[in-house]
Amino acid sequence: MDWAAIWLTMKLASATTLILFVAGLPLAYWLAMSRWPGRFVIEAVVALPLVLPPTVLGYYLLVTMGPYGVLGQISTSLFGVRLPFTFAGILVGSVLFNLPFAVRPFAAAFAAMDRQLIEASWCLGVSRFETFRRVTLPLCWPGILAGLILTFAHTVGEFGVVLMIGGNLEGKTRTASVSIYDSVQALDYQTAGQTALLLLVFSFTVLCLAQWLGRRGGPV
């Protein structure tokens, strides 16, 4: 089995999940609470990866990450990092591609919450941030956890975007799913089968967990 690829996959999935936890929560909270009429545009952008072929997203990302692209220029001048065919590159792609899997469950949990509880907290003199920490998060954690699990699992299975941006560099961008493809191309069905089985068992376990959390409901 290609342990290097599995290790890289776990690293990518963990980093993606962490970034989406930090960045996705405020975005989801805003989507759930905002009454701005143009909100639907942002909602559509967040949902886009659900219907867009991974190769399309991968293509545009690759172009913008190149030396003449906006993302490429920003990352080289600010961080001195080149994005195409690197771990940083596939991480950016993975975060964008997983946006709906994190943000939508988060937003659903926030929207299902009783808004009066938030107002009650404000009227008790507690700041917006503290209210979020002491009331919203504890009441929405099943939905948030479900979003994080989905994101992690979905990143583990990601193929198209990673291949388009990262290619197939061992230890750098070759994830488990790319490794399976690679093994099949080399007619090594045994290795491909082992990795595939591992991913199958993993995904099934994770979905069971997510379903179980989902049944425990959103806010208490």
């Binding site: 009066q116 509880l117 009650a120 009227c123 504890p138 208490v220």
Partner: peptide
């Protein structure tokens, strides 16, 4: 504002 607001359904924190 230093106010107290009693909500119709009381809005007690369930957790």
């Amino acid at each position: 504002r230093d106010i107290g607001f009693l909500f119709q359904e009381y809005a007690l924190f369930p957790h």
